[in-house]
């Protein structure tokens, strides 16, 4: 234990503090996902509209957010907004804003993909039956799209959780930062702390994401069959 630097884990409230740090990361990702899913569905439906100007604008939004590393977005929002707009954002709020913007873009693309994968005759049959546009979406298209969407949006949650590892760079004290604090405070008594603590954080992330990935995989399989 000593040699691997795992002993510090059980000193004081260290392990609880790590879990607290993980909680901060999970909180940021879950709030962002909860906001991204409805917004993404809305944008995704709009993306399948025929209006070219609208589609171009949405495409632009999607590509811009996708092409920038999330870390750059975090810096732009965290430091940029205060300078440009005078907003005083704390790190957590800035993170939620960035992840929601990014998550909405990713989600809308998934929704668009799911919608255009639905065969054209489904739309045509619905029209032939005299359903209105709203009825068609609500009763015919969405239920089919949702089946395809569920596994993909669950995957988005794990991506979100993994991406929250970046928020320590804008001063949010999350699980990695707590690990660093523990390594630093115990450098003398536990010189190998870096091994044990980073291994622990690695495993904590794995434990958080693996069950969600499994679930997504299962749902995806059952959809294919």
């Amino acid at each position: 234990m000593q040699a691997l630097g795992l002993d510090v884990l059980f000193k004081g409230k260290n392990f609880l503090r790590l879990l607290g740090g993980l909680g901060v990361a999970l909180k940021i990702s879950l709030i962002s996902v909860a906001l991204s899913i409805p917004l993404g569905i809305l944008l995704g439906i709009l993306m399948t509209r025929k209006n070219r100007v609208l589609r171009a604008i949405l495409r632009l939004y999607l590509e811009t957010l996708r092409i920038m590393p999330q870390m750059v977005l975090l810096f732009l929002v965290f430091f940029g907004t205060t300078r440009a707009l005078g907003w005083d954002l704390d790190g957590e709020t800035a993170s939620v804003i960035v992840f929601t913007l990014w998550g909405t873009a990713e989600m809308s693309d998934l929704v668009r993909g799911a919608l255009i994968s639905i065969p054209k005759h489904q739309f045509e049959s619905a029209e032939a039956l005299g359903l209105t546009k709203a009825q068609m979406h609500l009763y015919i298209i969405l239920p089919q799209a949702v089946r395809r969407l569920v596994p993909l949006s669950i995957n988005l949650i794990t991506r979100m959780i993994k991406t929250t590892s970046l928020v320590l760079m804008i001063g949010v004290v999350e699980v990695i930062k707590v690990a660093q604090q523990i390594i630093e405070a115990n450098r003398m008594v536990s010189p190998n702390g870096a091994f044990g603590m980073y291994l622990t954080v690695f495993l904590l992330y794995f434990i958080s994401c693996f069950p969600i990935s499994l679930l997504a995989g299962k749902l995806e399989k059952s959809f294919r069959e």
């Binding site: 691997l4 590892s165 990695i176 091994f195 603590m197």
Partner: peptide, 23 residues
């Protein structure tokens, strides 16, 4: 594959760069 896909790159790097030298 499961370990790699369910953990962030940042912590993978931290572990390789700061953790592994301890062993």
């Amino acid at each position: 594959i499961e370990l790699s896909r369910n953990t962030p790159l940042l912590i993978q790097l931290f572990f390789i760069y700061y953790g592994l030298p301890k062993i």
